[in-house]
Amino acid sequence: MTAILITGYKSFELGIFKDKDPKIPIIKKAIKRDLLRFLDEGADWFIFLGNLGFEYWALEVALELQKTYDVQLATIFLFENHGQNWNESNQEKLAKFKQTDFVKYVYDSYQNPSQLKQYNQFLLNNTDGAYLFYDEDKETNLKYLYQMIKAKDTYPLKCLTFEELNDIVQDLD
């Protein structure tokens, strides 16, 4: 795998509403472990969608790793106006996504629901594997992408699970 799609739960879906939430360092520790594994396996691109929460924390980790490893970062937004109504703090986070090595907007604006499926297909066609923070028992809109990935037999998927995060917490104790 060389291009890894990275996405997962948004912060509000995890009940995280502050940047100083004690859960974030635990999640970032898991992200770092997994991104290092991808780099060791030959990954040279990490692809983001521009969402707050798991993706943003993964972006922060990837930016740190980029100082040491030869890895490129990309953000492929669904729409050109992604995040335009976010508050100032979130606009600063959005700006980090827009400063990656490659930025693309798939659509100018929303036209119809089929765009979402086409976007997901575009992402799968242009990446070699995915890293998701997702659990089938805690469904969100991410289930549509997850189901498309699961339907592709030859598309590698690594899911970060709540159980893995609990293991990290146990190791800290």
Rank of each mutant, 00 (worst) to 15 (best):
Q121K: 03
Y155R: 04
A74W: 08
M1H: 03
E80V: 00
A151Y: 01
A30W: 09
T140M: 05
E80I: 00
D171E: 15
A95P: 06
D19V: 09
Q170C: 11
S89E: 15
E64S: 13
K20A: 14
V169H: 11
P156E: 02
T7K: 03
S89W: 07
T127G: 07
K10R: 09
D167C: 11
N112K: 09
I168R: 01
E88M: 05
R37F: 15
Y119V: 04
K20N: 15
E136D: 11
F133K: 00
I76K: 10
F79C: 05
A3F: 09
Q111H: 12
E41S: 14
V169D: 11
E13W: 03
L63K: 08
F54P: 08
I26N: 06
D108L: 09
Q111I: 13
E136I: 11
T2N: 15
Y119D: 01
R37A: 15
I6A: 01
I31L: 03
K20P: 01
I4E: 04
F122E: 02
K98M: 09
F79H: 07
F77K: 03
F162S: 11
I47P: 02
H82E: 03
D137L: 12
I76E: 07
Q118A: 10
F133C: 00
E139M: 12
T2A: 13
N87R: 05
K29Y: 06
T127E: 04
L52E: 13
Y110A: 04
N87G: 11
F46I: 11
D173Y: 15
G8V: 03
D101S: 14
A95V: 09
D153Q: 15
F12G: 01
C159Y: 02
L142H: 07
W57R: 08
F79E: 02
K152C: 07
Y146E: 06
E139N: 02
L124E: 09
L172W: 15
F79T: 03
I6Q: 03
D135A: 13
D101I: 02
T2V: 13
K67H: 10
K20R: 13
L142I: 12
E163V: 09
F48W: 05
F162I: 12
K10E: 12
E88P: 01
Y110R: 01
Y105K: 08
Q115T: 04
D128H: 08
G15W: 01
G15H: 04
F12T: 05
K32T: 14
I26V: 13
I16E: 06
I76Q: 06
L52T: 07
F102S: 12
M148Y: 02
D108I: 01
L14Y: 03
Q72G: 06
Q99T: 10
K152A: 02
L142K: 06
I24H: 06
M148Q: 14
Q121P: 00
E64W: 10
L172Q: 15
Q147L: 08
F79K: 00
Q72M: 13
I16R: 06
Y131H: 13
Y146P: 00
D34Q: 14
Q99D: 11
T127M: 07
F48L: 01
T154Y: 14
F38H: 15
G15C: 06
V106Y: 11
L165K: 08
T161A: 08
I31S: 06
K158M: 12
K28G: 07
D19S: 11
S114I: 08
K93L: 05
F38P: 10
E139C: 02
E136V: 10
Y9D: 09
